[in-house]
Amino acid sequence: MAASGQNPFSCAVCLDTWRDPVTIPCGHNYCMRCISACWDQEDEGVYSCPLCSQSFSPRPSLSKNTVLAELMGNMKVQNVTTTSVPSVACYAEPGDVECDFCTGRKLKAEQSCLACLASMCETHLQPHLDVPALRKHKLVKARAGLQDRVCAKHDKPLEVFCCIDQTCICMLCTMDDHKGHQTTSVAGERAHKQNQVMETRSHFQKNIQETDTTLQTLRDTMGHHKTMSEETLAHSEKIFNELIQYFEGKRSEVRELISAQQKQAGLNAEEMVQELEQRSTELKRGDAELAELCHEEDHSWFLQRFHTFKNSPALKASPIMILTVSKYFEDLCQCLSALRQTLESACDLDMLKVSAKIKEIEIARQLPLREDLLKSHRSGGSSDLFCS
């Protein structure tokens, strides 16, 4: 009897309404595909009913139950169903593995059976948890491409590994295309490859640890580099500001020297102007007296006055020497230009040293390239995993 709440017209294996229903000798009904999949996993010569466990030998032949098939067809037309409507979240979306037993809109598969080569939703998975014969099947997380586990030529499970061609084959392939080849079970080859995988993973974990250590060292170095760069930049600003202040002081000093010299020269020139003006006045007065003397008609008076002018202090005074000052200023400008050239040359020379030191500050690239990493794995005996 069907369990409470279960569709009485459903297969006890897939829990869905019968598709191509067949009746086995004990009277129970199943989908032809479901009971065939169950019996394919049974020991040879003994085939049992998943519900009542009654055994049959030899394997019963299966024929479509036309009465039940017509009944299922009428129910489908009349949209008769006793199953609950699943929530929208249970339906398969693009990228999800669909349930192979659902009709209409497919539900998302939860697990896949490696024996049935089918994926099942939560509802259709239940028989594999309840039926003793189905509990022996290997269940894995739902995955696509289960048909790749079947030989495309013989439609048999890929249970053998050909060591010559490095591929999975079925038992019939060992007597056909791969006859005479060295073979082993897929489980044995898996155990062998598992060791290579573990060895390769060990290499990966070692490289991960080394890479993470290098990464942390690089981050620490970059942090230290940033700190030192900021400190050096601040020191550079301080040095150049001090140089600017130093040269500002020297410029002020030269300006004060020139201003002081100009002031002193002005004072000296004023004294000379006064002296020259006084000399000019005395000479003009003497010249006027001499002009008057030239017109004197009294000869004795002329002779007496002549001796007075002949010994005049104005005639004996030394003339004031006025030197050209432009040459001295030209020499001063040349000295300042020479100072600039000397400082620029010294600064350029030292800046070359500074630039060379800055260029020496770099972080060397020591991280291995991906090709080097794979090469190291291949040299470690794990080349099979990287062969394309």
Rank of each mutant, 00 (worst) to 15 (best):
Phe204Ile: 05
Gln209Asn: 14
Thr214Ser: 12
His225Ser: 03
Thr227Asp: 09
Lys193His: 14
Thr214Ile: 09
Gln216Ser: 03
His225Ala: 10
Asn207Met: 11
Leu218Phe: 02
Glu199His: 13
Gly223Lys: 09
Leu218Thr: 00
Gln196Asn: 15
Met198Glu: 14
Met222His: 14
Asn207Lys: 07
Leu218His: 04
Gln194Ile: 00
Glu210Asp: 15
His192Gly: 06
Thr221Gly: 07
Leu215His: 12
Ser202Ile: 00
His203Gln: 06
Asn207Ile: 01
Phe204Gln: 05
Lys226Leu: 11
Asp220Arg: 03
Arg190Leu: 12
Glu199Met: 10
Glu189Tyr: 00
Met228Arg: 09
Arg190Asp: 06
Ala191Thr: 03
Ile208Tyr: 11
Arg219His: 14
Lys226Cys: 10
Asp220Ala: 03
His192Trp: 08
Thr217Lys: 14
Gln196Met: 07
Lys226Trp: 02
Lys206Trp: 01
Met222Ile: 07
Thr213Arg: 13
Ser202Asn: 09
Thr213Gln: 14
Leu215Pro: 00
Met198Arg: 14
Gln216Thr: 04
Met198Thr: 07
Thr200Cys: 15
His203Ala: 05
Asp220Met: 01
Phe204Lys: 04
Arg219Trp: 13
Ile208Leu: 15
Gln209Ser: 13
Arg190Ala: 15
Met198Ser: 08
His203Ile: 13
Gln205Glu: 02
Leu218Arg: 01
Glu210Gly: 03
Thr217His: 06
Gln194Met: 06
Gly223Gln: 03
Arg190Phe: 11
His225Lys: 05
Phe204Arg: 01
Lys206Glu: 04
Arg219Tyr: 15
Ile208Asp: 09
Asn207Gly: 12
Gln205Lys: 02
Thr221Trp: 07
Ala191Asn: 06
Gln216Ile: 02
Gln216Asn: 08
Gln196Pro: 00
Met228Leu: 08
Arg219Ala: 04
His224Met: 13
Ala187Asn: 12
Asp220Cys: 08
Ala187Thr: 06
Ala191Met: 01
Thr217Cys: 12
Gln194Phe: 02
Gln209His: 10
Met222Gln: 07
His224Ser: 13
Ser202Phe: 00
Glu199Pro: 04
Glu199Gln: 10
Gln205Gly: 00
Gly188Val: 06
His203Arg: 15
Asn195Asp: 14
Val197Pro: 00
Thr211Arg: 04
Ala187Gln: 12
Thr227His: 09
Thr217Gln: 09
Thr213His: 09
Ser202Thr: 05
Asp212Gln: 07
Gly223His: 07
Lys193Phe: 04
Thr221Lys: 03
Lys193Tyr: 07
Lys206Asp: 02
Lys206Gln: 09
Thr227Phe: 12
Leu215Asn: 02
Val197Thr: 05
Ala187Tyr: 03
Ile208Ser: 15
Asn207Gln: 09
Asn195Trp: 11
Val197Arg: 00
His224Tyr: 07
Thr213Ser: 08
His203Thr: 07
His225Met: 05
Asp212Glu: 07
Glu189Ser: 00
His203Ser: 12
Ile208Cys: 13
His224Gln: 12
Asn195Phe: 13
Asp212Leu: 06
Met222Phe: 05
His192Pro: 00
Met198Ile: 14
Gln205Cys: 04
Ser202Cys: 03
Gln209Gly: 00
Gln216Trp: 01
Glu210Ser: 05
Arg219Lys: 13
Ser202Val: 01
Gln205Thr: 05
Gln194Val: 01
His192Asp: 04
Met228Lys: 14
Val197Leu: 10
Asn195Ser: 13
Thr221Met: 08
Lys193Cys: 11
Phe204Thr: 00
Gln209Asp: 04
Gly223Ile: 00
Ile208Trp: 05
